[in-house]
């Protein structure tokens, strides 16, 4: 188990190194004029050249990757130009170990930006997660218990309907009608949990629902299927035969059997979301990592794009390792190797 964990971690790190090279080549080697945005609209070709040099985009991709890798391992200072750093020390930006680069669009280190935006994405992800898990499990069990009846069909049908409409459409519908037109809830806006937990919740409701609906349908149907499957298993039938009440059987046996796979699976989904939900954050103007990455793309902010890609990748890689280990712990039949 320990050896396996070590092996997985090492291969995860290797994967990230390979990804960083691939990502660098995808963006740095291919982008024709990332400096265009920084230079502004009435930019002359000479100015464009100066800007390109100032942003360091004129160097070969491998050199830029080398600087990135070195910065990640040992830390780095910006601006890149040593002459400028010496002449104007007040301009130097320290980017300590783990440095993901410097965003010229925001004039800040990528790490600082992500650190600032991550709480927003995490809040959104967690509140959506709570909604979709709670809703998914409750509605899924209900549907299974009333299999084939109207309530079953209604739950499955409505959740499919909510899933089928595009996320941005649902989001805009909620924003435009529920918040602006009817004023049922406050305009969605992020507040710090520590500042005011109530505002934190009320500002998150609509975006969290929007995001939860993407997943909820899947979880309802999954729960429903698991419950039906489990209820037909021998040991449940035995329990029923023993004379245990339906409630006990469902509460004790079925639920436990159902929750295990659900929790592990949802862990993976949550990991994917921690790094931001681009569409939901864009619709509701939540300045999380998702919106940040979107802005980075709009501005051709290559260091920021690469930094976010690698961070999100590491989330997924870590989550996969954790889930695989969890599987092994929960289900002894799974052999690691």
């Amino acid at each position: 188990m320990f050896a396996y964990t070590i092996r997985r971690v090492i291969s995860g790190i290797l994967l990230l190194v390979v990804m960083s090279v691939v990502t660098f080549y995808l963006f740095y080697a291919s982008s024709s004029t990332p400096e265009r945005f920084a230079c502004g609209p009435k930019c002359t070709p000479t100015q464009l050249d100066t800007t390109k040099r100032a942003l360091g985009y004129d160097e070969p991709t491998i050199v830029q990757w080398g600087k990135f890798a070195k910065g990640f391992v040992a830390g780095r200072e910006f601006p890149d130009d040593e002459k400028l750093r010496k002449a104007a020390p007040e301009q130097v930006v320290e980017c300590p170990r783990g440095c993901l680069g410097y965003s010229y669009g925001y004039s800040k280190p990528v790490n600082t930006l992500i650190k600032d935006k991550l709480p927003i994405s995490v809040s959104l992800a967690i509140s959506a997660f709570v909604i979709w898990i709670a809703g998914g499990v409750l509605l899924g069990i209900t549907a299974a218990l009333f299999k084939g009846r109207l309530i079953d069909k209604a739950i499955v049908g409505l959740s499919l309907l909510a899933f089928a409409f595009p996320t941005f459409f649902i989001g805009l519908l909620l924003l435009k009608f529920v918040a602006i037109r009817w004023g049922i809830v406050e305009l969605p806006k992020y507040s710090d949990f520590t500042d005011n937990p109530f505002l934190w919740v009320s500002g998150l409701i609509l975006p969290a629902i929007t995001l939860a609906l993407v997943y909820m349908a899947g979880y309802i149907r999954m729960t429903r299927a698991f419950v039906l499957e489990t209820m037909s298993e021998d040991y449940i039938r035995t329990a029923r035969a023993k004379g245990l009440t339906r409630r006990v059987v469902i509460g004790k046996h079925t639920l436990r059997a159902v929750l295990t796979p659900l929790v592990t699976l949802s862990g993976l989904d949550l990991a994917g979301l921690l790094g931001g939900a681009i569409i939901t954050e864009t619709v509701f103007n939540f300045n999380g990592v998702g919106k940040l990455s979107f802005t980075a793309v709009q501005r051709y902010d290559l260091p920021l794009i690469v930094g976010i890609v690698l961070l999100l990748a590491s989330f997924v890689i870590v989550a996969n390792i954790v889930v695989d280990l969890l599987y092994a712990v929960i289900d002894p039949r799974v052999r690691l190797g």
Binding site: G40, T46, Q47, T51, P79, D81, L84
Partner: peptide
């Protein structure tokens, strides 16, 4: 300082009477 002060109307530096180097800057 066109390597730091980007995005503004940098072209106005062409008006001021500062000699140019070989690159025309």
């Amino acid at each position: 300082a066109t390597d730091v002060i980007t995005g503004g109307p940098n072209y106005i530096i062409g008006y001021l009477d500062v000699p140019q180097d070989a690159d025309g800057q």
